[in-house]
Amino acid sequence: MKSFALIGAAGYIAPRHMKAIRETGNELVAAFDPNDSVGIIDSYFPDSDFFTEYERFDRHIDKLRRQGKGVDYVSICSPNYLHDSHMRFALRAGADAICEKPLVLNPWNIDGLAEIERDTGRRINTVLQLRLHPAIIALRERVQTAALDRKVDVDLTYITSRGHWYLRSWKGDDRKAGGIATNIGVHFYDMLHFVFGALQENVVHLHDRTKASGYLEYERARVRWFLSVDVNDVPAAEREKGKRTYRAITADGENIEFSDGFTDLHTRSYEEILAGRGFGLEENRVAIDTVAHIRNAPITNGGEMHPFVRKAL
């Protein structure tokens, strides 16, 4: 049994980590969040210690280490801009880190974390759950075994509508979340790289606080992508059914269905990490480079535009 600490216990994604820790037969011994709306802990680890002050949490983790009871892993579910600091904390506390996406906001942060890994001998792991999805693995195998006489034409559309709270929270602050493409899209860009190989071109057609779109070209694919948190971008036929989310990936016109199991892959991720097969710093580099470029690139008109872009402009 391994012992875990959790940073960001009140967040949306934290229960999936608690569930994964329990389902892999391990123990959550301490959790931290400035927000005390964390009653969900009782459903998984009612005996876990909990702190609302980072300094007290830090002292507690250090005390456990000095008593020979140091935690083995620190799971990080904090706001995006704090990931870098919290991973550094985990490694200096003598633990490995398991960090939610995005690993960091900028690619140069990866280099700094690699230095801390070398200094401490500990490892950073990240949750790139789409790499473990059976449908995505099957697509990758098909692409890799296919003749390379042409590139696959891909359309990626992901609309996950959010209420007014979104832009008032840290998620609406580019300095903290990294922008819409980073906050809701980074794992899709990782998936595209995982399936289709090296990134060769990155063009941005639209980028504002609620939506973004562009064109990516990989070794084996040409990708038009569109991301949004605006319910008005959900196709009218779907909105009439009361749906507020729309997710679609097509490859050469064929729909790639990966909705089933999409939210159940954290336990699989933990199983791989505990077995020493987690995804580390370098596996994240291409996706982080991709979103950093999208965040800072000039807007380009024309070229291979996603069909939803012209409606959004």
Score class of each variant (00 low, 15 high):
91 L>P: 02
43 S>C: 12
112 G>D: 12
237 A>I: 13
114 A>M: 11
87 M>H: 03
240 E>I: 14
312 A>G: 02
159 I>Y: 01
171 K>S: 07
254 E>I: 13
181 A>Y: 01
266 H>Y: 09
98 I>G: 04
24 T>D: 00
56 R>V: 07
122 R>K: 15
51 F>K: 03
74 V>N: 02
273 I>C: 00
197 G>M: 10
185 G>T: 07
149 D>Y: 06
1 M>I: 07
313 L>A: 03
68 G>Y: 06
163 G>I: 01
207 H>S: 13
132 L>G: 05
196 F>I: 04
182 T>Q: 02
304 E>W: 08
269 S>A: 15
254 E>S: 11
295 R>G: 07
51 F>Y: 14
72 D>Q: 10
8 G>Y: 03
52 T>I: 11
203 V>N: 00
96 D>E: 10
258 F>A: 04
96 D>C: 12
154 V>C: 04
272 E>C: 12
296 N>R: 12
138 A>M: 05
23 E>L: 08
18 M>Y: 14
102 P>D: 11
126 T>C: 08
267 T>W: 00
229 V>A: 03
158 Y>S: 15
170 W>C: 06
161 S>R: 04
134 P>R: 10
296 N>D: 15
24 T>P: 02
259 S>T: 14
234 V>Q: 13
149 D>M: 04
76 I>W: 05
7 I>G: 02
220 R>F: 12
132 L>P: 01
81 Y>V: 14
161 S>F: 06
23 E>C: 02
213 S>F: 01
253 G>E: 03
231 V>S: 14
312 A>C: 08
150 R>L: 09
224 R>G: 04
123 R>N: 11
279 F>V: 07
124 I>L: 10
65 R>I: 04
47 D>M: 10
125 N>Y: 08
218 Y>P: 02
84 D>M: 08
105 L>F: 11
43 S>T: 09
266 H>P: 00
177 A>W: 09
14 A>P: 02
216 L>S: 01
128 L>A: 01
3 S>V: 13
100 E>I: 12
7 I>L: 14
208 D>P: 10
177 A>C: 15
135 A>M: 03
74 V>L: 11
207 H>Q: 14
241 K>T: 13
107 P>W: 09
231 V>D: 13
119 D>N: 06
40 I>N: 06
276 G>I: 11
64 L>S: 03
295 R>N: 10
234 V>E: 12
124 I>Y: 01
42 D>T: 11
9 A>L: 15
20 A>M: 04
18 M>G: 12
